[in-house]
């Protein structure tokens, strides 16, 4: 554990809590892509199956359980509790265009051809593209509430901090996870355009982020 990894995990946790509380308090999931949240729930489910097979640390186990519970609670809020506020017509990204290539790639490029290993690889690849329905929704509607942009900012910061974590681990431990690093770089790139808009529009302006 290093400072980049710890800060990265905390940003990830903050992002998920921001989104959950936004929906819970406003009793509305307007502007939120339910599809992205289902994909993230799928990411955690397929990656954290090792909760049953290996123990890393109390921190690791607790965080995994918290992420899983919050991911499913968010999906529950969007699709069941506050379903009437969900903008399904704007959330029109075709997730099969992500799921099929990601599933195919996880069978082709993995560390070992075993069920748990393929599911773990699938989760890594899927996480790198899971935010695309949300970014697509913002592009389509042309705006996002500031709280939604704060959620995306912390999610992007988590990714950037994980990159720093891998650089650190490579130099201090010789640790290198090729699948995670390549996917992580791809994932972080998706946030670059958003980061630019966040700093130029949201922080300098006020309220909603509108696209040019």
């Amino acid at each position: 554990m290093n400072i980049f990894r710890l800060l990265g995990d905390m940003c990830h946790l903050v992002a998920i809590i921001i989104l959950f509380l936004k929906i819970w308090r406003s009793k509305s999931c307007a502007g939120i892509s339910g599809k992205s949240q289902v994909l993230f729930a799928l990411v955690f489910t397929t990656r954290y199956l090792d909760l049953f097979t290996s123990f890393i640390s109390v921190y690791n186990t607790v965080m995994k359980v918290v992420f899983l519970v919050l991911a499913y609670a968010t999906v529950y809020l969007i699709y069941l509790r506050f379903r009437s506020t969900y903008n399904s017509e704007s959330d029109s990204f075709r997730v099969e265009f992500l799921l099929v290539p990601v599933a195919g790639l996880s069978f082709l490029e993995n560390y070992a051809f075993a069920p748990l290993e393929i599911l773990w690889t699938f989760s890594i690849y899927l996480e790198s593209v899971a935010i695309l329905p949300q970014l697509f929704m913002i592009t389509k509607t042309g705006e996002a509430e500031s709280i939604t942009t704060h959620y995306l900012f912390f999610l992007g910061l988590y990714r950037a901090l994980y990159l720093a974590n891998w650089v650190w681990r490579y130099h201090t431990e010789g640790f290198f996870d090729q699948i995670a690093v390549v996917s992580g770089v791809v994932q972080t790139i998706f946030y670059c355009d958003f980061f630019y808009l966040y700093f130029t529009k949201v922080l300098r302006g006020s309220g909603k982020m509108t696209l040019p």
């Binding site: 990894r5 890393i56 640390s57 995994k64 993995n110 560390y111 640790f175 995670a180």
Partner: peptide, 10 residues
């Protein structure tokens, strides 16, 4: 890809 790293991250 050959070497499998430890899965100790989230």
């Amino acid at each position: 890809i050959t070497k499998m790293p430890l899965k100790d991250e989230l």
